[in-house]
Design a protein around this nucleic acid. Sequence first.
DNA 1: GCAGGTTATCAACACACTGTCGAAAGTGTC
DNA 2: GACACTTTCGACAGTGTGTTGATAACCTGC
Lengths: 196, 196
Amino acid sequence: MSAQEREAAILETAERLLDERSVQEISVDDLARGAGISRPSFYFYFPSKEAVFLTLIDRLVEQAEGGREVIDRIAEDPATRWREGLQVFFEIFGAHRAVVRAGAELRAVNAEARELWSGVMEKWVGYAAGAIEAERERGAAPAGVDARRLAIALVSMNERVQYATFAGEPPSLPDDAVIDVLLEVWLRSVYGEAVL
Amino acid sequence: MSAQEREAAILETAERLLDERSVQEISVDDLARGAGISRPSFYFYFPSKEAVFLTLIDRLVEQAEGGREVIDRIAEDPATRWREGLQVFFEIFGAHRAVVRAGAELRAVNAEARELWSGVMEKWVGYAAGAIEAERERGAAPAGVDARRLAIALVSMNERVQYATFAGEPPSLPDDAVIDVLLEVWLRSVYGEAVL
DNA sequence: GCAGGTTATCAACACACTGTCGAAAGTGTC
DNA sequence: GACACTTTCGACAGTGTGTTGATAACCTGC
């Protein structure tokens, strides 16, 4: 078995074990045994168990990058494009719920995970803020709160709501309602006139 | 020193240490020494260090109950009352940021903390959903997505956005913008007509 | 003022886990 | 078949948790 295969085996073991227990409940020994090596050998491949889970999260985050281009074509058909943007995330992260849960757990405890996630959120806030500004400039959306600040609130909402659904932590929305509800809030917040 | 004073000393030590480090980085020994007792003696007062932090969180959650009555008087002056509702949370939790951070950390790792927080969120979702329905019934708000589902999305947004601000985890809103931005999204989502 | 039970304390132990070191075994190469 | 490079792991040191059992401090009634 080559080094690359060992590394893959560790990652695979990690994702498999995450289906049953939390990061905290998975020991380095579990990962090593699952990949058919001893605990000290594990450290030849990864510096810590956190690094293993961080790698899983990284891979997921990269996939989501695909949603980026949808955001650039909002003007074509706003409601549909915003919906597609939401869907990209929901599908990619929804397909790896155990990893999403691990991400939340790690983020709470590990500075590196926290920074990784902050970076991801920042990036999407930037995209969303840009799209909101563009919509305002072309006259499709009325003026309102600062676009970046609005984007922070809406992206945060997306994250939290989807997490609750994926983790099954109440109060949460059923799978088939998530996109509709989030989209409604986005559209009203971006395109609605100020009220009251 | 009486048993009650000891218990209080442990809680006080916990909150003080939380200003400098995370739950994970605080050991039972730290709490015990801080309260002037040995590690085994600590277990006479609390079954684990998690129980200590859970107690701190519990106390904070109870304080927030004060926001409840504001929600019942929405019809008087919607924009102002919703703002006051948001403010209650922001002020109470904002005054104990270290405990809020501890809550997030514990929730990621500890089932009891998770359930406690789920319960709190559920309660507030219930209040908000009730208020939204009442506003729709009296004709102040138009029909739209199911009130409970909308409430879940909005309460989740509040939680995540406020947490980011308290913890200083980017992307986050500056302290003095949180209420304004959240309120805008709430008002447009609850009182705005469907758009696009 | 002192026997009695309750309350509080801690040294010592048993575990579980992490991360490291150094010796050995395996693999390829000329 | 000797050299270097990769990979493996037994054994160790360290840090933390939670428990046990012996002991000390403190009431309370007599």
